[in-house]
Write a protein that binds this DNA or RNA. Sequence first.
DNA 1: TCTTTATATAAGTTAAAGTTATATAAATAA
DNA 2: TTATTTATATAACTTTAACTTATATAAAGA
Lengths: 318, 318
Amino acid sequence: MCAKLASSKDPNRLPLHGLAVFESVARNGSMSSAAKALGLTQPAVSQALKKLEQQLEVNLVMRHRNGIELTKAGQELFMSCVQSFDQLLNTINAIRQPKSGQQEVTLSLSTATATYWLLPTIAEFYQQFPNILVNIISRDNDSNLKSGNYDLAIPLSAQPFSQQDFHIWPLLDEVVFPVCSPNLLEHHNLTTSNINIEGLQQLPLIHLENNPEARISWHAWVQASNQKPQLSLIEEEVPAHFMHGQTYSDYFVALSAAIAGQGVALGWQHIVKDLLQDQRLVRLGNQQWRSDHPFTLIAPRRKALTPAVMALRDWLLT
Amino acid sequence: MCAKLASSKDPNRLPLHGLAVFESVARNGSMSSAAKALGLTQPAVSQALKKLEQQLEVNLVMRHRNGIELTKAGQELFMSCVQSFDQLLNTINAIRQPKSGQQEVTLSLSTATATYWLLPTIAEFYQQFPNILVNIISRDNDSNLKSGNYDLAIPLSAQPFSQQDFHIWPLLDEVVFPVCSPNLLEHHNLTTSNINIEGLQQLPLIHLENNPEARISWHAWVQASNQKPQLSLIEEEVPAHFMHGQTYSDYFVALSAAIAGQGVALGWQHIVKDLLQDQRLVRLGNQQWRSDHPFTLIAPRRKALTPAVMALRDWLLT
DNA sequence: TCTTTATATAAGTTAAAGTTATATAAATAA
DNA sequence: TTATTTATATAACTTTAACTTATATAAAGA
């Protein structure tokens, strides 16, 4: 009954609920699957998304028969949501104090590795060790691995960590190949097999921001491919097409763009494995590049190797 | 009536509503003023905050007679909230298309300058130019000023921008002095006046992350102070105390820490002016340092100087 | 033509969030 | 001392945003 101030129409008030729903829709590629992921019904998601678009006065998704596609604005907003929510989740995990009696391990890895490689199987670990809590901290770069507060980490970069300061165990071979959404190929009337360097030049490419730590780049991939005789290109030059395209600073965001049909990304085998299986991505051609810098699991020597840490380490290494 | 899945107790579901309330409480320094800022009543805020603390199982604030104080966990969470919500707000502003008939200017400045210098007076501008919409984009560093999409900006760094690519107008002198919360002084039984370099060594210091762009650092401040004869220290050495303390990468977050009583920060006069007036901060000593790199307003020449842009420029420069 | 699989809309329900009223506790003023 | 002010907390009731069920629409495939 009381006169409301500028509370609900305040432009600086974030529509957080709507953003959370939108993030799930964008991540899952459809409203129905987002609803399942959120534990809601499909109409709830449809309504929340519609409301958000009305509040922002921007079209965020294009509705298709087989799901949704993000508009340009939707893509930008999705990137922001992923990064913002990730940061909040990380911080909450970091400040949450463990329940007494509960053992704890903190594992630091990239958002993409966490989402697509670890999370699908972590339930097994919890089943095997119900009294160990795994604290997952995701990050975009390795800058805080020198000082950060964690027990185990999977560094993104290939730069070696000193044996003096870290325990180091080899974890996974680095195997890379191009991937994209099945829809993208359809639009361009191409098929997955026999896509070589020339074929790739007909498709938009998705790049990772060119930081020195990055393992993966289209430039390096073309150069590596050229050393194989069966490819038709002259060795020395990388075509200009491989230098242009959308660039993201986070691999998870780049992969999300690929899933959304924005272009072709370079995929690490262990990360895209599940995405290939459920057809959210397809592999292009049969070329693959295996680097000589395997992914490693590291543990800072300044932290104790508690039984919980060792249990997770052994589970990861099997 | 339907059986609920793991919807509400999902640990990966962010309590966004609670976080928004908490952010406002932390920013405003008390629940009552947060309630006012949010357009809610005090019990609503009290309940929301209590619920959040129960959900996270962490104490975020200490309740005092004169407001609240953040715990260590609360500080960390506040930083994350500020950064995350800021990023979302920026993106939303960026993707929002202007209403037809409405003129628009995009202004890029630091979060602290936006919050404490611009926002308190921007209403005047809107009153004078009701048909111009000012799109405020806040940022922590100048890295995207070379390429970003904005009409006007106030660079953080003192590095000169090229006259070829930018219009440049001098805006504000850079005047710096130490500030802290009145409570901090009380706890240490000190008074505001006559705090010199020795006095500062009894108080915790708040630093800005040492990026090359930073204008402001305790190290530089001590060195500058030492050149003034009335200070008692021998010229050459900066005491070790000025090299240690909490370090933040964002000036807004550093200032928030100072307001929360965490320590002494270096304050730019134009930014802390209002905070001194309403006693959220007090100035220590009467030393001040005026640099010879005034803050400037810049406009990229690649963007047109529309009437709306010129109106905002002229209003800022008066 | 009949499923299947998307999203949209309408109408009723529920639970989270908010309000009012009151309590507690500390500091301040009379 | 006793009132006043200013802060947070709690109890009980109210509102409304969010959610559900039911149904519609539209396209693709069997």
